[in-house]
Design a protein around this nucleic acid. Structure first.
Length: 514
RNA sequence: GCGGGAGUAGCUCAGUGGUAGAGCAUCAGCUUCCCAAGCUGAGGGUCGCGGGUUCGACCCCCGUCUCCCGCUCCA
């Protein structure tokens, strides 16, 4: 089976077993938006808990936050999102290259000056000493023609950049006969505005609508609350603020299932440090985060760092943790040293001092920030990719099993009476009632026991508990293990401890060495 | 966004210009079984959506939506 086939099967499995559904499916779906089903939401919640507890509970100097999705629009000016992601784009259909329409036109305008200069150089050669450049500029029909056209385009360009529709920009590109540098053709698409951020209106139109944006990252909610948390929590540097929440990006191309969605969820932790200590902490968090991933046991060889060579405007060091997905090594988490860019920028735009008084040095300064940012949905896909397994069994049988770590498994225990009579369902119900307060458990009495085991394998349930006639005599049950398919006899009153041992985060956390 | 492929039951897929099929799955009953395959019955699809051609379209044509692959993009 190729990796591509594996991925297709995984996507189908996610739908068939209630992990992930296409959004609005009965209305033909909505591109790059997905819903999590009854098993998906459990897995997703468990992933979030694994992250949250490892960050907030296990670090005394990290606290949580839940900021609103809507924020003051000026925040996106300060963060750079408004200016950096608002470009008119055009594609050449032959080379399939994408350009900024405004840059194409600006380049063309600049080229006209080159053309004029060439005319002047030519004339200079012809007339020698007697050449009067100023006069030539004002009189040469050729130069005047080029200049006039240039100025006309320049004026049109300025007007069109402020126009509400982009057709005018395209018309300039057509009129100027601008060609694609790669293909050399003028086979252009429409000009489209690339807006990274979704926008909407807050307040009624009557009282003067204000444009607000759906946040494209959760980080800014942490930065603007830096002082609130630092002061009310009496936090001392270095300390961190962690947040889990939705973010929205209007990607031009969003694909590969839940890997790149327009609405997605991030788990971010911004760690505030003394200026100059950021590289130390950046390296420390790289190791800590990698250990968190590897603790799940999906194989160390399936992870790698990818250091960024081209850094974003706010960063002085950046790396990704990449996982070996069926479609290749792809980013799951980013660890960025964001310098003091964000806090300084908010200080400037808001006019409020965002500084920390360091009692040790007696100085006030804007802290530096090291960010760890992981996509919940990518993590979900990572777990599913790693867990999905088609297994050949003795006797020519096969099974599909999700080897999800027990800690993350959506259902921890399936309770099933061997037969649905003789009081066995009643005992099963008692066991359910005992476990359900602590674990997500399910009940199944339909079909043969083997069939029921396979159903649980397909959703990754680590334990199946079977009640039989012997149970009525000695209060023991059969526990069937997902990965080994091995069975053992366990006393009913030992079940809770057995499950706890397997699904508790405790063991996992102890390996993290925080 | 461009190019290529696909869309029929929950899943995997047949199908023909003349009123929609199979296997699995689901549900009810029987069977009482420790690794999916026993028996009986039932439910479920305006064939992605819209338009056109035709006496008649799941089938032919156009548009559109969604998914997959490649390119492109990616804070």
């Amino acid at each position: 089976m190729t990796q591509e086939e594996l991925f297709k099967k995984l996507v189908a499995h996610c739908k068939e077993y209630g992990f992930v559904f296409p959004s609005s499916e009965i209305y033909d779906g909505l591109a790059a938006v997905y819903d999590y089903g009854q098993n998906g939401v459990e897995l997703k919640n468990n992933i979030k808990r694994y992250w949250w507890d490892s960050m907030v509970r296990l670090h005394e100097n990290i606290v949580g936050l839940d900021a609103a999705i809507f924020m003051h629009p000026r925040i996106w000016e300060a963060s750079g999102h408004l200016s950096a992601f608002n470009d008119p784009l055009i594609d050449n259909k032959d080379s399939k290259k994408r350009y900024r329409a405004d840059v194409l036109i600006e380049d063309w305008i600049a080229k006209q000056d080159d053309k004029i200069q060439k005319e002047i150089d030519k004339a200079k050669k012809r007339f020698g000493e007697t050449f009067d450049e100023t006069k030539y500029r004002q009189t040469s029909p050729r130069v005047l023609e080029i200049a006039a056209k240039r100025d006309e385009i320049h004026t049109r360009f300025a007007a069109e950049m402020n126009a509400s529709n982009l057709e005018g920009l395209r018309q300039i590109i057509v009129d100027c006969e601008i060609v694609c540098p790669i293909s050399g053709t003028r086979n252009w698409t429409e000009v489209r505005q690339f807006n990274l951020m979704f926008s909407t209106q807050i307040g009624s139109l009557a009282e003067g609508a204000n444009t607000v944006y759906l946040r494209p990252e959760t980080a800014q909610g942490i930065f603007v609350n830096f002082l609130n948390v630092q002061k009310t929590g009496r936090m001392k540097l270095p300390f961190g603020i962690a947040q889990i929440g939705k973010a929205f990006r209007n990607e031009i191309v969003a694909r590969q299932f839940i890997f790149r969605m327009r609405e997605f969820e991030q788990m971010e932790m911004q760690f505030f440090v003394r200026p100059g200590e950021e590289m130390k902490w950046w390296n420390a968090w790289k190791q800590t985060r990698m250990a968190w991933h590897r603790a799940l046991g999906f194989g160390d060889e399936n992870y790698r760092f990818h250091d960024h060579e081209k850094l974003a405007h706010y960063a002085n060091a950046a790396t990704d943790i990449e996982y070996n997905f069926p479609f290749g090594f792809k980013e799951v988490e980013g660890i960025h040293s964001r310098t003091d860019f964000d806090l300084s920028s908010h200080q400037k735009f808001s006019g409020k001092k965002l500084q920390y008084f360091d009692p040790e040095t007696g100085e006030s300064y804007v802290p530096y920030v090291v960010e760890t940012s992981i996509g919940v949905d990518r993590m979900f896909l990572q777990v599913m990719s790693a867990a999905y397994c088609e297994e050949a069994l003795e006797g020519g049988d096969s099974r599909v099993v999700l080897r999800i770590p027990a800690t993350l498994a959506p259902i921890k225990v399936a309770v099933m009476p061997l037969v649905k009579k003789d009081g066995l369902p009643e005992v099963a119900q008692q066991i359910m009632d005992d476990l359900k307060f602590d674990y997500n458990v399910t009940y199944d009495e339909k079909d043969s026991i083997g069939k029921r085991y396979r159903r649980q394998d397909a959703v990754g349930t680590p334990f199946c508990v079977t009640i039989d006639h012997q149970t009525l005599e000695d209060q023991t049950v059969t526990v069937r293990h997902r990965d080994t398919m091995a069975q053992e006899r366990v006393a009913i009153n030992a079940l809770h401890a057995m499950v706890e041992e397997a699904v508790s985060f405790r063991k996992l956390f102890k390996t993290l060495d925080l």
